[in-house]
Every structure is written in structure tokens, then in C-alpha cells.
Design a protein around this nucleic acid. Structure first.
Length: 485
RNA sequence: GGCCCCAUGGUCAAGUGGUUAAGACGGCGCCCUCUCACGGCGCAAUCAGCGGUUCGAAUCCGCUUGGGGUCACCA
């Protein structure tokens, strides 16, 4: 049997990382077994329709690398893949259920349902099944009078419903707690719950992978499958992703990840500089662990290594620190060409000469966690601020204002007569240090400070000199020296 | 509130009756070093509590506590 999974987002215009993680696991469950991954758009709610939202879904999937085998944009044998285009196929199923005595028309008004909820005794919610036993005559009369109705599923009144979940095991619910849920709305459209079951079955979905918030509605789904005599799919419910935030009283609280936890949209994260492959890698690890202790995975690796048995049951907190680390690891793994492709825009902004690209690859790769940090790291190239002479003081390097003056005075003529190459410059300065009988840092420190004007630079003093070029370097060095006089 | 689920360091987590309770992020310290990183080494930090079962429980059972989810003509 070929495994078929589906990702069924609603076009809301925003792809939460929680949803993306679900999509990822759906993709992995299918691909690990050589199965088929399907994209279905669930847009039965006309009121929430957002312009361009479908495109956000396609973009996200494409950037994340989660390539679907069937979907609205590429077709397939089980289409259409957009619920709004399937609208006419749901009602007949519901009507069949009415005929079989497993569903019924409910003519109750929204107002009545509302007051039902308001007057409900403590803890008692749900529909009172008022229309469940209407007589044929009453129904006929209502129909004839054109009273709008919904179609509700008849839940068993006693007993219990159990099902097996691949990660949570066996779960049992008392039937009396199950509401006679609405299948078809007044407007004739199916509810999400109903359309979901019909679509999953008619599309041949074998493994339903979704968030654990569906754990408690699954019995209703199963009752539907049973009512139709359909085979129940394999369920794989996923633990939720949580976020940390501070409440009004200043206390730290952990709750379901949402927008107030910062950037939680996939595209937001991308805009902040996280790599798609790093985000995928990181969220794969939220709620799943491999058999060994590896942590850095490409999507292909994940397809190979993913195993449902590694999925955990407890919710996990989204940690930006760890995401940043994963991102940095992916950067370190990049080849020169890929690294440059990402870094180039920032180099251009900073005014980096092409002959420095290779050196910067080596310098920056271990120093950045995100590419957009390059701007800050190279800011000294363009903006040579009026720094304070106290910068020349550095205890660890044994550099003082006095020694800096002496070293700079000696270094400038040496550098003027040195070929402007990385090795040569380093050599020259180290030789100078030997002659002066001081630690390398005593001469390196002031030269680097005078050249950059900042305490921290990516790379050492000779690299800074190379990046700046001979002319600019010497100009800054002399200016630095004059500050010390 | 009813129902359902969950519970190993601050965070992600391995662990499936016998381990000095892995590993990673973060923190701290040391080393390397021309600054900062990278890298290396090390330290602190966990089985929510209480009862059972057992020769022996992080592992099995129960209760308590805590957390989460869900109770729509939303998806």
C-alpha cells in the first residue's frame, strides 16, 4: 500500500511555523515510505477569505522545499484539490446519512442555540438535540415553509468510542460527551470537520497527520467513517509547539505559539535572516528526535532518518537561540559559492572588493549566525567614526595609549614598505614585534584599532588592512597616530 | 467547569525494570588566539509530589499537583 498524506491549510495569508511543522511531518511520513504528499486547500469559510492567501501557501511550500505530488496548482487524479471547487459533492453524502438514520435536519435558529449556551448549567455545553426526533410531518412542514436548516450527525447516546493513535496510543471517549455536530451549514456548505472526512477518504489518504488539538474531535470523525462503512485512516497526532511570553504580572508563561511570541510566521523568520533549511531542520527537532544524537539535517537527511516512533507526546517550546545555532551550523556547511550567493548583497552594501570575497568567506563563516549580521560586522569599512583613544587600551593584549603611540609610529613606515598582501603584512608586523621585544598583540592591537576604529572586527589586523586597501589603511593609521599625539 | 492528553536540567531531548540518568542549545570557567568568533576541555543544572508493585523503579499502577488541548453554522 502506498502511503498518502495531505497538508490541508486554510488560506489565511499567514503560515505559522506550527502549521509548517505539521506539513513537514506529513511530508516526511509520506516520503520516508516512498509515498505521496498531497496539498489541499480548505477554503470552505467564505467569510475568512483573504486575497492572495493561496499564493502564500505555495510560496511557503516551495521555499521550504516541501514539494507536493498532487495539488491545486499541479493537479492529480483525485482533484479538484480546493474545497470550494468540490462544494457540490459533500451534501449528497450528508443526505445519504439522513436516509440511513445517522443524521438529521436541524431547524434551530442561531439565536436559539445561543440562548442555549447562555443558559447552560455550569459545564454543560453543546446542542440539546431538539430536532433529533422531529416527526416526518414537522420536517415536511418546515421544509415546505422554507425554514433554513443544517444537517447534524446523530451521535450514539451511550457507550464509548475508542481509537488508536500512532503516537498517543489508545484513546477512549464517552459517547455522551459527543455533540451532534453540524455536517452541512445553512448555506449548504460543509463544515470543516465533514469536508475533511469526505476529502480524506475520497482522496485516498492513508495517514492523517495533524496537531494534537484534534485529539478530542477524532471520535466524531471515526463515527463518520463508520457510518459510511469506510476504512479509518492511521492517525498520527503531533504535540503542539509552545511559546514563552511574559504576562501582565511580569510572570513567564508558556502557551500555544502565536503572534505575540514574536516572529512565528515562516516568512517572518525568513525575512529575519533564517535559512529555510535551518528552519526546517529546527522544527523537525521540535517534537521528534532521531535514533542517534545528530542534530543537523538537510531535508533529504530527514526523509531518510524520519521515523514516527521518534515523535514525542509532550508539547515543546520554540527556542530562538537554538534556531540561531542551527542556522549558524547550516552556514558553516555551505560551500564557497553558496555562501557568496547569500553574502553578496551585504558585501555590495558594505563596499567590499571582489578580490576579498574568498577571504571573507573564511572570516565570516564561523562568525555569523545569520547573513544579515554581515552589515554590522563590516560597518567599519564605510563608517570610520570618531572613536575614543581609550580604545587603544587593552589589558589582555598589553596595549596602552603610550605603547600604541610607539607601535603605530614604528608600524606605519614598515607597512608603507610592505606588499599589501595578507601574509606579508602579518609577517611584517610580527617581525616588528620581535624587534621591539613585545607580544604580537602589542603592535597588532593598535594597528587594528586605528584601521577600523572599533574594538571588535571579523578577522585580525592584517585582514582588516587588506579589506581597507593600502591607501585607506595608511590614511586611517596616520589619523590614529595623530589622535595619540 | 466537563472531557481528552501530557509531565526527565532554563529550553530541545535520549532513556522502555538494574546506567556514574546520554547528547544539544543557553549560562559559567579554562585553553587556543593579533580583537571577536570558530574549535577543544571542563563546571553548574533534571527524573513534579505522595503512595503502591518489585530483590530493584525515571521506566509499571493509583492518587495529587502542574501544564496543555477541546467543548462554534472557524478551520
Amino acid at each position: 500500500m502506498t502511503i498518502r498524506t495531505r497538508f490541508a491549510p486554510s488560506p489565511t495569508g499567514f503560515m505559522h511555523v506550527g502549521n509548517l511543522r505539521t506539513a513537514l511531518y506529513e511530508y516526511l511520513v509520506a516520503k520516508h515510505a516512498g509515498g505521496t504528499f498531497i496539498l489541499r486547500i480548505e477554503d470552505t469559510d467564505r467569510e475568512r477569505y483573504v486575497e492572495g492567501a493561496e499564493q502564500v501557501i505555495y510560496d511557503t511550500m516551495a521555499i521550504a522545499g516541501l514539494v507536493h505530488d498532487e495539488g491545486p496548482d499541479i493537479g492529480g487524479d483525485y482533484g479538484p484539490y480546493v474545497q470550494s471547487e468540490r462544494l457540490n459533492m459533500y451534501k449528497p453524502y450528508a443526505e445519504q446519512l439522513i436516509k440511513d438514520g445517522k443524521a438529521y435536519r436541524c431547524f434551530c435558529t442561531k439565536e436559539r442555540l445561543e440562548s442555549l449556551r447562555e443558559n447552560a448549567a455550569d459545564g454543560v455545553t453543546g446542542y440539546d438535540r431538539h430536532c433529533r426526533n422531529l416527526s416526518e410531518e414537522e420536517i415536511e412542514a418546515n421544509l415546505k415553509a422554507g425554514i433554513p436548516y443544517v444537517i447534524r450527525q446523530k451521535m450514539p447516546l451511550d457507550g464509548e468510542t475508542s481509537y488508536h493513535d500512532f503516537v498517543y496510543g489508545d484513546i477512549t471517549f464517552p459517547n455522551k460527551d459527543l455533540d451532534d455536530q453540524i455536517l452541512i451549514k445553512t448555506d449548504g456548505f460543509p463544515t470543516y470537520n465533514f469536508a475533511n472526512v469526505i476529502d480524506d477518504h475520497t482522496m485516498g489518504i492513508t495517514h492523517v497527520v495533524r496537531g494534537s488539538e484534534y485529539l478530542s474531535s477524532t471520535p466524531k470523525y471515526n463515527l463518520l467513517y463508520e457510518a459510511f462503512g469506510w476504512e479509518i485512516p492511521t492517525y498520527i497526532h503531533l504535540p503542539l509547539i509552545m511559546g514563552k511570553s511574559i504576562d501582565e504580572e511580569g510572570k513567564e508563561v508558556i502557551s500555544k505559539l502565536s503572534k505575540r511570541h514574536g516572529s512565528t510566521g515562516f516568512l517572518d523568520l525568513i525575512n529575519e535572516g533564517y535559512l529555510p533549511e535551518a528552519i526546517i531542520n529546527y522544527i523537525a527537532l521540535l517534537g521528534w528526535a532521531p535514533k542517534d544524537t545528530r542534530e543537523i539535517f538537510s531535508l533529504e537527511d530527514l526523509v531518510k532518518e524520519f521515523d514516527v516512533s521518534g515523535i514525542s507526546k509532550s508539547p515543546s517550546v520554540f527556542d530562538y537561540d537554538k534556531l540561531a545555532w542551527v542556522n549558524a551550523e547550516h552556514i558553516k556547511l555551505m560551500d564557497e559559492e553558496t555562501f557568496l550567493a547569500h553574502a553578496k548583497p551585504f558585501y555590495d552594501k558594505a563596499g567590499v572588493r571582489p578580490d576579498c570575497y574568498a577571504m571573507l568567506d573564511e572570516l565570516l563563516k564561523p562568525r555569523i549566525t545569520k547573513f544579515n549580521e554581515i552589515s554590522d560586522k563590516l560597518a567599519f569599512l564605510e563608517s570610520y567614526a570618531d572613536y575614543d583613544v581609550s580604545l587603544f587600551e587593552h589589558k589582555k593584549s598589553k596595549s596602552t595609549v603610550e605603547s600604541s603611540k610607539e607601535m603605530l609610529e614604528a608600524a606605519i613606515p614598515v607597512l608603507e614598505n610592505t606588499p599589501w598582501e595578507r601574509e606579508a603584512l602579518t609577517e611584517a608586523l610580527m617581525t616588528l614585534a620581535q624587534q621591539k621585544e613585545v607580544k604580537n598583540s602589542v603592535v597588532m592591537w593598535p594597528v587594528r584599532i586605528a584601521a577600523s576604529g572599533v574594538a571588535v572586527t571579523p578577522g585580525g589586523c592584517s585582514e582588516v588592512l587588506i579589506l581597507l586597501g593600502r591607501e585607506e589603511s595608511l590614511r586611517r593609521l596616520n589619523e590614529g597616530l595623530s589622535k595619540l599625539n
